[in-house]
Computed example of a mutant assay.
Amino acid sequence: MKKIALTLAALALAAGAHAQIGANSTQPHAYGLLSLGQSRLNVSCDGSLACDKSATGGKAMLGYSFGNGFALEGGYANFGKFRASSGPLSVSGKPEAVVLGGAYTAELTPDWALTGRLGAAYVRTKLHADAGVLSGSDRESKTQPIVGLALNYALTPSTRVELGIDATRAEYQGERTNLRMVSLGARMAF
């Protein structure tokens, strides 16, 4: 976790020194977004002795801003690892997604902006179960809608700190569950 935080800080400093294009500039530009945060799986754990519906997740996105507030984004989101157990039976799930969508950033002030996101996520849910000496794994992938909202603040003309929330769904054998991630990261124009 410390290595990821240091990497984010180094990228933010490097981008600030490298790029002179503002993250909300009226000039078309590319940008990257790296963030880490808390994920939550909305699932019932009735009958489990132990159930962990929270995990550490993160995302890495690349985007292209057309200079009028609209942007096209794509990237990867990992929602972490969720666990439940009851006696000798334990189950873990790892949802992750490849994301493609659009974004619109509205400047609230010269330093503050609000970004809304809407797109499609190809969500792969990996499950692993252990029952004593027996174990097994399976996975299922489905395309799901993904929405997001983020508030960001300009540290430099090219680097912004972003606090956001993203929501999508994971599905396994017809059972859908909502996924939500609140994250903090750095958005760097280049």
Rank of each mutant, 00 (worst) to 15 (best):
M1C: 12
K3E: 15
I4G: 03
I4L: 14
A5K: 10
A5Q: 14
A9I: 13
L11C: 06
L11P: 00
A12C: 08
A14M: 09
A15W: 01
I21R: 11
G22E: 05
A23F: 01
P28K: 07
H29W: 02
H29I: 02
H29D: 00
H29Q: 05
A30E: 01
A30M: 05
L34M: 06
L34V: 09
L36E: 04
G37Q: 01
Q38G: 13
R40N: 12
V43G: 10
V43H: 11
C45A: 13
D46P: 09
A50D: 10
A50S: 12
A50V: 12
A50Q: 08
S54Y: 14
G57M: 07
A60K: 00
G67M: 03
G67S: 10
G67A: 08
N68Y: 02
G69S: 05
G69M: 03
G69W: 02
G74F: 11
Y76A: 06
A77R: 06
G80A: 07
K81W: 12
F82K: 02
R83M: 13
R83W: 14
R83D: 14
S85F: 02
S85A: 11
P88H: 04
P88S: 09
P88D: 10
S90T: 10
V91S: 07
S92H: 09
G93M: 05
K94T: 07
A97R: 01
A97N: 05
L100G: 06
L100Y: 04
G101P: 01
G101E: 03
G101V: 04
G102K: 03
T105E: 04
T105H: 02
T105W: 01
A106Y: 14
E107K: 13
L108Y: 08
T109A: 10
T109S: 14
T109F: 14
A113T: 06
A113P: 04
T115D: 03
G116I: 14
G116D: 14
L118P: 04
L118D: 08
A120V: 12
R124Q: 11
T125P: 07
T125V: 11
D130S: 09
D130C: 09
A131N: 15
V133K: 10
L134D: 09
S135H: 15
G136C: 13
G136M: 15
D138L: 14
R139A: 15
R139F: 14
K142S: 08
T143A: 11
Q144L: 10
P145N: 06
P145G: 08
I146M: 05
V147L: 07
L151I: 15
Y153F: 11
A154V: 09
S158D: 00
T159F: 01
R160Q: 07
R160G: 00
V161P: 00
E162F: 11
G164L: 01
I165L: 12
I165T: 12
D166W: 02
D166S: 06
A167R: 05
A167V: 07
A170D: 02
Q173V: 10
G174A: 04
E175P: 06
R176F: 08
N178V: 10
M181A: 05
M181S: 00
S183N: 07
L184S: 04
A186M: 03
A186S: 07
R187D: 01
M188I: 03
F190K: 00
